[in-house]
Design a protein around this nucleic acid. Sequence first.
DNA 1: CTGAAAGCGCTTACAG
DNA 2: CTGAAAGCGCTTACAG
Lengths: 330, 330
Amino acid sequence: MPAKLRDVAQKAGVSIKTVSRVVNHQGELAESTRARVLVAIAELGYRPSKLARALVTHRTDTIGLVLGDITNPFFPEVARGVLDVAEPLGYSVFLCHSDGDHQREIRSLHSLADHAVDGIIIFPTYELEEMLDQVAVSGRPLVSVNRPLNSPWASSVMIHSYRGGRMAVAHLLARQHRTIAMLAGPTADAHRLRRTKGYRDALLEHGVPVREEWIVPGAPIQARGRESARELLLRYPEITAIVAYNDLLALGAMQACNELGRRVPDDCAIVGFDDIPLVDSISPSLTTVRVDKYGLGRQAMNRLLQMLAKPGVELEPIWLDVELMVRQSA
Amino acid sequence: MPAKLRDVAQKAGVSIKTVSRVVNHQGELAESTRARVLVAIAELGYRPSKLARALVTHRTDTIGLVLGDITNPFFPEVARGVLDVAEPLGYSVFLCHSDGDHQREIRSLHSLADHAVDGIIIFPTYELEEMLDQVAVSGRPLVSVNRPLNSPWASSVMIHSYRGGRMAVAHLLARQHRTIAMLAGPTADAHRLRRTKGYRDALLEHGVPVREEWIVPGAPIQARGRESARELLLRYPEITAIVAYNDLLALGAMQACNELGRRVPDDCAIVGFDDIPLVDSISPSLTTVRVDKYGLGRQAMNRLLQMLAKPGVELEPIWLDVELMVRQSA
DNA sequence: CTGAAAGCGCTTACAG
DNA sequence: CTGAAAGCGCTTACAG
């Protein structure tokens, strides 16, 4: 049995309240009492129960991180960023998967609410407005990534997807490509829409017509990229470049090129998005639009802390810039 | 304000206790009462507070996962495995980093204990025996990976590191390599010792003398692999093959080979360990000893559940087999 | 089949 | 500078 407040109080010969005071550094205490209590605490190895405390303070010192899938190489660095700011401040973090599934996402949010987390960081799969009420997370600060939200309880961190999409295409246009296809990512993703718009706008600006049949949606995984690229290249051999919604898709496209005997970048240039680990070590190394994933995690957590400190203040979205990493694949 | 037991009781016109009974599916209830309560629960959107419940039951439905660093590509799949068995059963999981640092590890364990997690899964950096007492996790089930533990409160999942090390070297020997170096990983790692022993034994069995200066320790990260391999190859040009403690180190070695103009596998063969994502997509693809990371996570969580269900029963370690994936690099 | 009381380990006003 | 009482939202024996 771990020691409790009462045990410490007894040992130190003071009241429960006095011990509570020294633990929480509040109120004025006689130095001698204080010292005596400290000794008792050390001897008993006393650690306050966060549970009992939370029951009355309504703060658990925990937060929830809801993301698609930690095995997607995009997320570990984000999680690392979140943890790196959370842990030193005494926050513990619950990790939850949504798998891009709205039902799982709701279940995760419920579960986090059941554990009374102080706040939530989420990569939403869906429109969140309704969810916020439904899930009774309202009143609990929430940071959503890549989805703007209108609520004093929510704030967001946004990636410059539009700009990134444009940069990727602009780069290919500058290299004289005119037949550029796009592996466009998950249909329901707002993020995707911005990237796709960047693609369209860049093409149109250069007077290159947009071919709708060259914009193919699909799950953001390597297998899907391979499949889609394969079909695309077989059906439209004139395509000389592919921009992908993310690196996993781009990697799949590379695979397809290999299999079809099309050399990258000479026969088909490829540009990814995210700059996940190892894509700089493969051959040819992947040209991609870099997102600062670690920074994203840190910023999201910092924003959450800000909301925790000053609840109910509406805050502007944070915009995260992107950067084109020109490597070998395009 | 979320609804409480009392609100539900009031609305349904029954006592608190009755509501508690229907929520926890215990005792016999008149169907009509039961139905009335259920309606009240639904209307109020009542969800029991896990905090309040835990205070009396001593179960929080949470577990802690302590690992080196989620950005090490070995871990995300492990975490996924853990979550995939934990979440459907109603367990939420805290993610903590140790960064291979014993102090951080202890802090993580303390923090988990403060939150009264039901159990812990840990990739220990260190000898755990002492820690177990020190951290007051005793009495709380703990599963340690790759470190056997003598306690009815602890159990372990072990990777066949020795066998893996042997397999890697045996493969190289079969391909006529006789000058094989090893990037041996973190010094304090018991795991490493077994891998290294596999390396030694395989060599000795084939009558190949072990050169101590060819076994070089170091942090299990790519940068370090590059550095160590570089020195090794510069100093001992006769080396024709390198086995690495893990894939990250192997990737670093590949990089070094590239920079030194040594072709892989012709001038220098390389074998990794783990089979992390993407090493099958690089060129040359990496020959490596595969560990079923996802299965590892699942097994660890299953073992933890087993301990939770039957506390205090000493259990045999689970041994996880490994498999040599022969690809292009060796 | 249902309820009133005590208690889990803390903190929060309120006294003195 | 320090303490006694009430209460956070539940469950656990114990009654009836």
